[in-house]
Design a protein around this nucleic acid. Structure first.
Lengths: 232, 232
DNA sequence: CGCTTTCTTGAGAGAGATCAAGGGTAGTGG
DNA sequence: CCACTACCCTTGATCTCTCTCAAGAAAGCG
């Protein structure tokens, strides 16, 4: 059981990480959370279900999506270490508005609602990080909405999805953007509100036009500006 | 100058209101904010500009939107008394991601970033309300994204826009939903990601089918369930 | 080396955008 | 009181883009 993760010795801190906190708060965090190891392709939160706890992601990536009854899917974002799942629902005491599924083996820390609220109210830093974490979720949702509403063409939507992904995961930024693209065409389609086939066709077109290059999981956007301009 | 609004005597408190706070916090709030009266059709925040203050809405409604270079528009929500503008941007220290325009004469209270952060960190209740306010923004953005991505048909998108609006502004709920609909077809189109003409045509169709009834600004949805089912 | 998952490419149809022209209503000012 | 303007709504015709259906290729995995 490697689930004995300690928040105090944890290495994954960063400006985008909820658990970047003063030592005192980390001690508290360590006591109130229950660690979990979860396999890939498991559902952590299910849309529509009541929210009684939050999950802090310690390791692994988790797909955040919303679905319609008709089976249509919207991929909102991929959450990673330092993100908190279920925050907005806990705060508002509503049902979950999204579904969260692990896409690889993950290490989470679950905290019951009441304990989390106490934890938050007990420290200004925790409060601020909580608000920040929700603000990040907000921005991801807004990006999705923008993409879907403001692009007139399918090309624009896909370009926007790729650029947004690049901004969050870029490795090099020497004019061209290079990054890991683990998403399938199906998943990109769900991000951009397109059909799988259209994504395939557009990526082929982008490749021919020299805008995009893909070797395995490594994707390069050679002319971000040109892609941007498709956004219209 | 009726801009001498006091937070302590202010009547518009509610569960959805940022300024529903203990008396002590209200005293603080009263000292740090500068009241403003603003005419209709004025821009309060402009997308892309840097965020140096938040605005609490005391009176009036404000349109929150995002635009593309091509002039295309997405209407995210209509904010009202008790909402806070620019919160997410202040917290993340990014540029504004949305534009806010008054749609009627408004009374606002502006608070510089530093003062607001101090205010927030100084009280658990303010912190919690801040997080809550951002969570509400998140939910609105998510609703927009859902609507745009998950509805296959234009009818579904419009139905979803109407239902979401109804949920936020309903008056009666005796099977049928009745509410004020001050939005023009153009604005509804921006909410649903459709063209103005399509909105006109669909509303006409809904009227013929007995789903929707409109008398001036008063709109009634007679069969919410049927509208819902269009969502697919 | 079969099996599943993912990608590729083609052909056809339909929904909605766009363009266009006209009508209704409210506000303004002579 | 009436012209005039501005804004919004309505309806029609056309055309294009993307979805859908279909059939197969490629690639990863036990």
């Amino acid at each position: 059981m490697p689930a004995s993760h300690s928040c105090i010795t944890c290495a994954i801190r960063g400006p985008q990480c909820f658990c970047t906190l003063p030592a005192l708060d980390l001690l508290d965090l360590d006591t109130i959370g229950a660690p979990h190891d979860i396999a890939a392709n498991q559902t952590v939160l299910r849309e529509g279900y009541s929210a009684d706890r939050v999950y802090i992601i310690c390791k692994g990536r988790i797909k955040i999506s919303a679905a319609s009854e008709g089976g249509r899917l919207l991929l909102v974002r991929i959450a990673g270490p330092g993100d908190v799942l279920g925050l907005a629902s806990i705060l508002r005491t509503t049902n979950h508005k999204v579904t969260a599924e692990t896409i690889e083996p993950c290490q989470l820390k679950s905290i019951p609602r009441a304990a989390f609220i106490d934890f938050m109210r007990g420290s200004p830093d925790v409060s601020q990080n909580t608000a920040l974490a929700v603000a990040r979720e907000y921005e991801a949702a807004l990006l999705s909405a923008r993409r879907l509403a403001l692009s007139t063409s399918a090309a624009g939507k896909l370009a926007s999805a790729l650029l947004d992904w690049a901004r969050m995961n870029h490795i090099h930024n020497n004019e061209a953007l290079e990054f890991a693209m683990p998403l399938t065409h199906e998943e990109l389609a769900c991000m951009a509100g397109l059909s799988r086939e259209t994504v395939t066709r557009l990526l082929a077109r982008f490749r021919v036009e020299g805008l995009v290059d893909q070797q395995g999981e490594r994707m390069t956007l050679h002319e971000p500006a040109k892609l941007q301009s498709l956004y219209c």
